[in-house]
């Protein structure tokens, strides 16, 4: 027995170390994914013992569901507008990348929005947009841009943009901190060499700085796309998908169908579509990570 342990220790130990994490991860992440994928082919109210197999029925129904298309379109709006946060974050990082006189404190305060919960951010912006109390209308009316107050969160056309704007606040802060860290790691030698060659300003930014910031840009884009597709909290707290589902996204639509309407199979089908969309980004991220792994 002892000999066996001595001889095979290096083969057995890693699996012993991995066991607790693998068990937890399999029960709560891997197996549920498989269950959801299969549930999407059934009709189930979440209560009955029997699930009815309906093939692609849920998916066919989805393609005829207006709320599905609205949600999908809103997801696209989220992704597109969220992608403004890496460049804006970079701009703020370049603006703040200085030393001395309280700059450390300034940088942390700029980062602040990312630390607080999206529920709190959502409450802040609900108040910000409020037609009778909100800052937005006070300012716009104050400078004479509008006469009647606008109710951004009750306008079917504007509501998604208003929520995305609130979401950009923490997301820009996140991208900014990624770029500040990236800027910190840039080699001084290259900057000096380039400036000796007469390179400066925008040309320096484009040809010397940005290529070195590539790892930061990669992470900023990945977390931004994933974050935009995951959006749920802000919508739940600010509008609950309203007015008339016009601010719904797939994540919220799924929750509503399963929990509020007891349509678990239909919900699982929506979740599956969201999962497939995100898999593209996950696969892209994984290949990049594993490639870097091989280079090392």
């Amino acid at each position: 027995m002892r000999d066996f342990w001595e001889n095979h220790q290096l083969k057995i130990v890693p699996w012993m170390l991995l066991t607790p994490a693998l068990i937890m991860f399999s029960i709560y992440v891997i197996y549920p994914i498989i269950q959801s994928l299969s549930l999407s082919f059934f009709e189930w109210d979440g209560l009955a013992d029997e699930k009815t197999y309906i093939g692609f029925g849920n998916y066919l129904e989805l393609f005829d569901d207006d709320v599905f298309w609205t949600s999908l379109k809103n997801n696209l709006i989220w992704v597109i507008f969220y992608l403004f946060s890496p460049p804006i974050g970079l701009a703020i990082a370049l603006f703040l990348n200085q030393k001395g006189l309280g700059m450390r404190l300034v940088k942390s305060l700029f980062f602040f929005p990312f630390v607080i919960s999206q529920i709190v951010v959502g409450l802040m912006f609900t108040w910000f947009y409020d037609p009778s109390f909100g800052l937005l209308n006070t300012v716009l009316q104050g400078i004479g841009l509008i006469e009647e107050p606008i109710a951004a969160l009750s306008s079917e056309r504007g509501v998604t943009y208003a929520i995305v704007f609130a979401g950009l606040w923490p997301q820009i802060a996140y991208c900014m901190i990624l770029y500040l860290t990236g800027l910190n790691g840039i080699s001084k030698g290259q900057i000096e060499a380039a400036s000796l060659d007469g390179c400066s300003g925008w040309r320096m930014l484009w040809h010397v700085i940005l290529p070195q910031l590539r790892p930061a840009t990669f992470i900023a884009i990945v977390v931004t796309v994933i974050g935009s597709l995951r959006s749920f909290d802000l919508i739940a707290i600010m509008t609950a998908g309203g007015p008339y589902n016009s601010s719904s996204v797939l994540a919220f639509f799924m929750y509503e169908q399963s929990i509020t309407n007891y349509r678990m199979g239909y919900g699982a089908a929506i979740a599956t579509i969201l999962f497939l969309i995100m898999s593209v980004y996950i696969a892209y991220f994984l290949t990049r990570m594993l490639q870097q792994e091989r280079i090392r």
Partner: peptide, 8 residues
């Protein structure tokens, strides 16, 4: 990176 909804 998976969406929470697929686990929900």
């Amino acid at each position: 990176f998976i969406p929470f909804q697929i686990l929900m």
